[in-house]
């Protein structure tokens, strides 16, 4: 079963074509990196997949359901760009942020799920702390806990390590490997950092001038020059 199935997708802002008749499919258990230069349309593509934008033509199916009628959003975790996602004065504890992943968390089972998600990301000791008191890397882990608390089948990550230090980035990518390989969660990681994504993801989707090219990590490593040229 495919988690995401994109067919002949096109999107433009006014006269500016951003996505040009794009096709690709992401299967259950894949770890896919979506790469492209700044302004290449990666985030637009992600917003189309999430149903936040409407395409001019083509279709997107999530778990075999057209995105327009898709309602099982608990099956999808989303980690937005860290920078500027929240107001630093917002008085929310780590536990409250993770609970957002369940939206209506109220009972003991939900609290247990929150605790478990925090344990997976190694932040269980911080549950009562305010998000604004944490470092960038720790905040990112909390957002992962929020994404996995509803036990999703698919997580979409939009440039998740921007503004995070190198050590925290390494820990973050290790955690993503754990989610993908051990918990069998499908990942779509958006980044402009070709080297990192080529190292981490099993498949790469390269977006350039509205068109995509898909390859495996092995294909990319073997013929790096060709793909970089693309």
């Amino acid at each position: 079963m495919s988690c995401i199935d994109v067919k002949n997708l096109s999107f433009s802002y006014g006269n500016e074509v951003i996505i040009k008749s794009v096709n690709f499919e992401i299967a259950k258990g894949d770890y896919v990196g979506l790469i492209g230069q700044n302004g290449s349309g990666k985030s637009t593509l992600l917003r189309l997949i999430l149903g936040l934008l409407k395409p001019q033509s083509g279709s997107i199916r999530l778990f075999d359901t057209p995105v327009e009628s898709f309602r099982e959003w608990h099956r999808i975790g989303y980690i937005p760009q860290r920078s500027g996602i929240f107001d630093q004065t917002f008085p929310a504890t780590v536990e409250e942020i993770v609970a957002m992943g369940l939206v209506n968390a109220r009972n003991a089972a939900d609290r247990h799920a929150i605790q478990r998600a925090l344990e997976v990301v190694g932040m269980e000791r911080y549950s009562a702390r305010q998000l604004r008191e944490l470092s960038g890397g720790q905040q990112q882990r909390v957002l992962i806990a929020r994404a996995i608390v509803g036990e999703p089948d698919l997580i979409l990550l939009d440039e998740p390590v921007v503004g995070v230090d190198t050590q925290a980035q390494q820990n973050f990518y290790q955690l993503l490997q754990h989610l993908n390989k051990k918990m069998n969660i499908t990942l779509l990681l958006i980044s402009h950092d070709l080297d990192i994504v080529a190292h981490e993801a099993d498949y790469l989707i390269m977006l350039n001038q509205g068109e995509v090219c898909r390859c495996t990590r092995e294909m990319f490593v073997k013929d790096k020059k060709k793909y970089i040229a693309i």
């Binding site: 149903g51 936040l52 959003w73 608990h74 996602i85 929240f86 929310a92 957002m100 939206v103």
Partner: peptide, 10 residues
């Protein structure tokens, strides 16, 4: 907290 995230969560 995050309007876009709220939209994604339906």
């Amino acid at each position: 907290f995050d309007e876009e995230y709220a939209r994604v969560k339906g």
